[in-house]
C-alpha cells in the first residue's frame, strides 16, 4: 500500500532535479564543446571559447564594471541599511512598520519601471545614464536582500535584553556593539551582503536601460553574445552561473543550517 506513493514521490523529485540541473549542465558542456549541434553528445572538447571570451576587449571591462556596481551596492547596503536597521530596532521601534513597507516596495516595482522612473527624474548631468544612478537603482532593487537577514538576526537575538544584560555587567556602548551585537548579527550581514552581490552581479535590466552602452556590465555582454556567438555566450553564462553558485554556497555555508537566503528575503514580502 505504501509502495505507490513512494514511487510517485521519487519520480516527481527526480523530474524536478532534472529540470533544475539539465540546463545548467548542458551550458557547462556546451561551453567546452568543439561542435555540438547534430549529435547527442559533443564531438570534442576545447577551452577555445573561454580563450576567445577572455581576449575580447569588453570582457575585462564589463567584468570590472559588474564588480564595481555589485561591490558598491554591497557597501552602500553595509553603510546605510545595516545601521538604519539596527537603529530602528533599538531606538525607533515605531519606525519599524515604515521600514518594513519600504523594504516590500521594491518587490512591487518591476525593474523596467524603476529604470524608467529614474531616467525621467535624473535626466540631467552628472546623474543622467551614469554608473552612480545605476548603483542607486541597484541598491533600491536589492535592499530587501540585505534588510531581511539583518532584521531577522536582530529579532532572533532580542537586542534589548542583550543590551540591558551587557549594561548591567558594566559594558559600555562600544563594547556592547562590538562584542555582543556584531558577532550575533554577523552571519545575517554576511548572507545579506552575498545575496546583494549575487543579485546585482546578475542584474541585466537596470544596467541595460540606465547605462546601456556607456557603462556595459557583464550580463549586457552576455546578452549581446547570445545573438552573435552562442559558444562564447556559453562560456560567459558558465562564468555567471559559477559566480551565483559560489555566492549561494558561501551563504549556505556561512549562515549555517536552517537559514536559507531566499526564505529570508521572502520574509519581507
Amino acid at each position: 500500500m505504501k509502495q505507490r506513493p513512494l514511487v510517485l514521490q521519487s519520480l516527481l523529485v527526480a523530474l524536478f532535479v532534472a529540470y533544475m540541473i539539465l540546463p545548467i549542465i548542458a551550458t557547462y558542456i556546451f561551453s567546452i564543446a568543439t561542435k555540438w549541434d547534430i549529435t547527442l553528445m559533443p564531438e570534442g572538447y576545447t577551452l577555445e571559447w573561454y580563450q576567445t571570451a577572455f581576449d575580447h576587449p569588453y570582457f575585462s571591462i564589463t567584468l570590472t564594471n559588474s564588480f564595481i556596481v555589485s561591490i558598491a551596492a554591497v557597501l552602500v547596503g553595509l553603510l546605510f541599511i545595516v545601521p538604519t536597521t539596527y537603529w530602528v530596532h533599538t531606538r525607533v521601534p515605531s519606525a519599524k512598520p515604515l521600514l518594513d513597507l519600504l523594504m516590500i516596495l521594491p518587490f512591487g516595482i518591476p525593474a523596467v519601471v524603476l529604470a524608467l522612473a529614474l531616467i525621467r527624474v535624473y535626466a540631467f548631468p552628472p546623474f543622467a545614464r551614469s554608473p552612480f544612478l545605476l548603483i542607486s537603482a541597484c541598491v533600491i532593487f536589492s535592499m530587501p536582500f540585505m534588510y531581511r537577514p539583518v532584521s531577522n538576526s536582530l529579532m532572533a537575538i532580542d537586542v534589548h535584553t542583550l543590551t540591558e544584560s551587557a549594561l548591567s555587567l558594566g559594558a559600555n556602548t562600544l563594547q556592547i556593539l562590538l562584542r555582543v551585537i556584531a558577532p550575533n548579527i554577523l552571519p545575517g550581514i554576511l548572507s545579506g551582503s552575498l545575496l546583494v552581490f549575487a543579485t546585482v552581479f546578475a542584474e541585466f535590466t537596470l544596467a541595460n536601460l540606465i547605462t546601456g552602452a556607456s557603462f556595459k556590465t557583464f550580463p549586457i555582454l552576455l546578452v549581446e553574445f547570445t545573438r552573435r556567438d552562442g559558444r562564447i555566450a556559453a562560456a560567459l553564462s558558465v562564468i555567471s552561473f559559477t559566480v551565483a553558485w559560489l555566492a549561494s554556497i558561501a551563504i549556505l555555508w556561512g549562515s549555517g543550517r536552517g537559514r536559507k537566503p531566499t526564505e529570508e528575503a521572502l520574509g519581507a514580502r
Partner: peptide
C-alpha cells in the same frame, strides 16, 4: 537547490 535556482533568472538562464 531551489534556493539557488530560483535566483537563476535572466540572461544566463535564457541562454541555458
Amino acid at each position: 537547490l531551489s534556493d539557488v535556482t530560483t535566483n537563476f533568472a535572466g540572461a544566463p538562464l535564457a541562454f541555458a
